[in-house]
Design a protein around this nucleic acid. Structure first.
Lengths: 373, 373
DNA sequence: TAGCAAAATGTGTTCGAACACATTTTATTT
DNA sequence: AAATAAAATGTGTTCGAACACATTTTGCTA
């Protein structure tokens, strides 16, 4: 029936006489080995095979060898479907991220959480989301206490507040709760793994875009528009990246911290309004839309690079007020973070120390291709 | 146990007294409704509920109404896990793509196929891959005959050869075999859906990069390096895209078709070697590495934009000989294509006419972030 | 109203893994 | 060799959906 010009990918299909003997009758011969198959091949009962596989003892040397001999020959992988159906184990995963109601960026992170839950609910994953204000460390402490009270099986954490996150991580370590961090890579939290961009590379990428697209580039302003400049580790790392990129080049780089919620934040921007047209701008947060139009009025030749595909930024990308946006893949960040828990709990896989996400370069021409998917 | 500061995402958790009555005893109350739950609520047997859900008739009006009343109130979604375990239906999906042994780009496509099979094997999806030479329409015809003989449940097709693909599509339509196309969007094939880049947008993106990064741009050469320029629909569409981008701008665009397997293909490139430094280059295939170094020798200020993250191109991106690559996401293309079959077969979802993939802009700084994932 | 077919409804089995529990085999002691 | 404990092995049930098959109920006719 099957033309032999076809590659059947599945590696369990290495030809094997014993397997053939058992499954030959079935033309479709698609099934994997089951515990019963192995039991028949080893001439023992399913229970014995099960005990060997799970190392639960109570097996004689003779039976152990018979089963191991079979296992060595075939490529047994337990059927996750059946496993999940039987187990009915519920893994409660807490997710702690900022401001899902007000901040568009974190809403996109939340989208990834929802997508995950929809897809993996059937496998026993329950997600409990709590949020805190990125303006207010106290709200983070309160929320983290709630997480400790919930006693989840695991936690996906956006460690925005440096010190508070480290304290929290220590408390979680005591209860043995595994943590995966997203967005901010903080070593002292010692997560199972980190999911997010390599922010040095991200800053370097911004630098390369400014470098290639600016005419007569002399100065770059790195603008940190944020609520809380104290805990802004991810902004300073981006700044480090762009400085790294330009370190052998004849360009001056200036850092400027602006509090986005001050009434007069535009005044702070205006203080640099007398800059010449040989200056470009790198805004390290998703707030580029708050200053891009003004900057382009003062220096039309400036290149402006910002972060994140939030609607306000996308609109200014299309009008040409923002030249490039770097997409941090917020929904992928949370989704992949949660996926690592399935790797751990469902497949007992080892996790890499970090999974760096792609640094997507977005301009007016390719932005649509990122919004639809 | 659960702090009410948490959002439980799952929409089946809307509070519901009847559900509560059944599941209250279970503190974890995570389970979804089962057919037995519904049977109990509607005061009928599981078999009757099953007949109502699957519209298999043999149900009295009274019972139908009782069950429907319950179904209207709760949010029943069958457990895919149990469904998959029971069904044991095997879906054989044929995959027909070019040259998986020799062409790096198509090998990456094949990676996506392998990843899919690994992940969805448990759900009954079996993948049979056949390949053809992109140089040789006859090999495509031969391979397509093999697919027809295999009689798969579905086909993932890269329709490189225009006419042959249309003929093939008609034959498949007769046997009722659903087709999803990737890479080349050919309307006449009438696939269930198409997965790949919107090539007009892709060409426009290349244009925008050249436009922003070139000094004193006057001419652009669009170079089609390929084996078979006759069936090169995807190249001409990219060319159309870049022309579209520059249509109101004062730039001349020249098309140049080169046969990559001719001994003297470099001579063809040399015929344009007297171009001034005000010229940039857009290579519409993955063969940018075959000409980039030469071009940069002749005109160091040229901007070169190519396609695909194959090792040869990546190396030249790092040396600066290629300025930008556009990543077509080959592995995602095949994976997502096959995923649409799971949507169809497992979840009976409706498919959109096309799923356009992101147009990734890659340069020397962000390329690493794409290679590791 | 008995008789009987047709319609409606309920029950039991299957898928593969996991584990409790029952049964058999082996080893040890009297 | 019989008694008994201990170890080894096998069997049966569960998870939820699906469907074959068994059983019950209904409607109709003689």
């Amino acid at each position: 029936m099957c033309s032999n010009t076809f590659y059947f990918c599945s590696y369990t299909y290495k030809f094997n006489l014993q397997r053939y003997a058992i499954l030959a009758a079935n033309e479709e011969s698609m099934r994997s080995y089951t515990i019963k198959d192995i039991a028949k091949l080893a001439d023992v009962s399913a229970g014995t095979v099960d005990r060997v596989i799970h190392k639960r003892g109570k097996v004689s040397d003779k039976a152990l060898q018979k089963v191991n001999a079979v296992l060595a020959q075939i490529d047994y992988e337990p059927n996750i479907i059946a496993k999940s159906l039987k187990n009915q184990k519920v893994w409660v995963i807490a997710v702690l991220i900022p401001d899902i109601e007000t901040d568009e960026y974190w809403m996109q992170v939340y989208d990834g959480v929802r997508e995950f839950e929809k897809e993996y609910k059937g496998f026993g994953f329950k997600v409990a989301v709590d949020s805190f204000s990125s303006l207010d460390a106290a709200s983070f402490i309160k929320a983290s206490a709630a997480v400790l009270k919930l006693q989840p099986d695991a936690l996906l954490l956006a460690p925005l507040f440096l010190h508070e996150s480290i304290t929290f991580a220590n408390e979680l370590a005591e209860t043995g709760t595994p943590v995966i961090t997203i967005n901010n890579e903080i070593e002292e939290v010692h997560p199972l793994t980190f999911i997010g961009q390599n922010l040095i590379e991200s800053g370097r990428t911004a630098g390369s875009l400014i470098h290639r697209c600016s005419r007569n580039l002399q100065d770059i302003f790195v603008i940190h528009i944020s609520e809380d400049p104290v805990n802004a580790s991810h902004m300073t790392t981006k700044s480090q990246g762009i400085k790294d990129y330009f370190k052998d080049k004849d360009v001056l780089i200036h850092d400027l911290k602006i509090n986005a919620y001050h009434q007069n934040y535009l005044d702070q921007v205006k203080s640099i309004s007398n800059v010449p047209d040989t200056t470009s701008f790198f805004i390290t947060t998703s707030k580029a839309h708050q200053v891009a139009v003004e900057i382009k009025e003062w220096s039309p030749g400036a290149v402006i690079v910002g972060y994140d595909l939030i609607p306000e930024n996308v609109a200014l990308l299309k009008t040409g007020d923002i030249d490039f946006l770097i997409n941090q893949n917020p929904s992928k960040m949370s989704f992949e973070g949660l996926m690592r828990f399935t790797d751990k709990f469902l497949f007992s896989k080892e996790l890499a120390p970090h999974y760096y996400l792609p640094i997507d370069i977005i301009n007016a021409e390719n932005v649509r291709s990122y919004l639809s998917s």
